[in-house]
C-alpha cells in the first residue's frame, strides 16, 4: 500500500526561501539547505523547490540551490519554476532534481509535456496546475496567478496526463496562503478525472486539513508556511495525522 506523502515546499527566490500570501508580499523565510536538512530529519517524505525568481540571475542561483539541497537530502526532490524547454529540465536534473514540474510553459505549449515524458519518463514529468474557482468549476491560472486562461482545470489535467504528466501538483488559487484548508471539491473532482498521483497544495494550516485532503483523493499533501514558521514540525504533523487514523511513514 502506498503511504501518503507529507511534502514541505520551499519557494526560492535569488537563493533564499521566501513566503507570501498568493505569491505577493514575499518575505525571507530562511536558508534552503538548512530548511531541507531540517525537514528531512523530521521525517518529510519529499521536498518541492519552486524557483520564483523573476530574473535570469535568480535562475542561476536556483541551480546552485538545487545542487546544495541535493547534497544533504536523501529524499525525492521535485523542482519547478521557469522550465520552458527540455534542456531547462535537464539542467535541473543534472543539478540534483528527481522530478521536474512545469506550469505556465506547458499551458502555452502542451507538447512540452510529451517532450519531457519522452526524454525523461512520466515519473519525472510533473504538471503544476494552479486552479481558481470559476462558475461551477475551476479554471487554470498562470504566471503566478496574474493571468486567467479561461481553460477548464480538470480538462487540462486530463489532457496533460494523456500527454505524459505522471503526477499533478494541484494548487488551489483561492485557498493558497489563507489557512482555510485545501479545496476538497477540487481534489475530489481531479481524483475522478486522472489516475496519476495528486499532490494537494494551497490552504493547509492544520493536520486535519491534510487528513481531509487525503480522504478526498490526494496522494500527497504539500505545505510551506506552517513548517517555515515553526508552528508545526513535520514529525509532530505526522504524529497528529497518525492520531487522526492516517497511516504515515514514521
Amino acid at each position: 500500500m502506498l503511504l501518503p506523502r507529507v511534502i514541505p515546499c520551499l519557494d526560492v527566490r535569488d537563493g533564499r526561501v521566501v513566503k507570501g500570501v498568493r505569491f505577493q508580499g514575499l518575505r525571507d523565510a530562511g536558508d534552503p539547505v538548512e530548511l531541507a536538512a531540517a525537514y528531512a530529519g523530521q521525517g518529510a517524505d519529499e521536498l518541492v523547490v519552486l524557483d520564483v525568481s523573476a530574473t535570469p540571475e535568480g535562475r542561476g542561483h536556483a541551480l546552485e540551490v538545487v545542487a546544495a539541497v541535493r547534497a544533504v537530502l536523501p529524499l525525492p526532490l521535485t523542482v519547478g519554476g521557469g522550465v520552458r524547454e527540455p534542456d531547462d529540465a535537464e539542467a535541473l536534473l543534472a543539478a540534483g532534481a528527481d522530478k521536474v514540474a512545469v506550469n505556465t510553459a506547458a499551458v502555452a505549449r502542451p507538447g512540452l509535456l510529451d517532450d519531457l515524458a519522452r526524454r525523461f519518463g512520466r515519473q519525472c514529468t510533473i504538471l503544476a496546475l494552479d486552479a481558481a474557482r470559476s462558475g461551477d468549476g475551476w479554471e487554470v491560472v498562470v504566471r503566478s496567478g496574474r493571468d486567467r486562461t479561461g481553460r477548464d482545470a480538470i480538462g487540462w489535467a486530463a489532457e496533460a496526463v494523456d500527454r505524459g504528466a505522471g503526477e499533478i501538483l494541484l494548487t488551489s488559487w483561492d485557498r493558497d496562503g489563507t489557512g482555510a484548508g485545501y479545496d476538497l471539491e477540487l481534489l475530489a473532482a481531479m481524483r475522478r478525472a486522472v489516475a496519476v498521483p495528486i499532490i494537494a497544495s494551497g490552504g493547509a494550516a492544520r493536520p486535519l486539513h491534510m487528513a481531509q485532503a487525503l480522504a478526498a483523493g490526494a496522494d500527497a499533501v504539500l505545505a510551506a508556511t506552517i513548517f517555515h514558521d515553526d508552528r508545526m514540525s513535520v514529525s509532530r504533523l505526522k504524529a497528529e495525522l497518525a492520531a487522526l487514523g492516517v497511516e504515515v511513514r514514521r
Binding site: L2, L3, E167, V196, P197, D219
Partner: peptide
Amino acid sequence: VRRPQLGWNR
C-alpha cells in the same frame, strides 16, 4: 492502482 507508483511503500 495509481500509476506510476510514485511514493513510499512497505
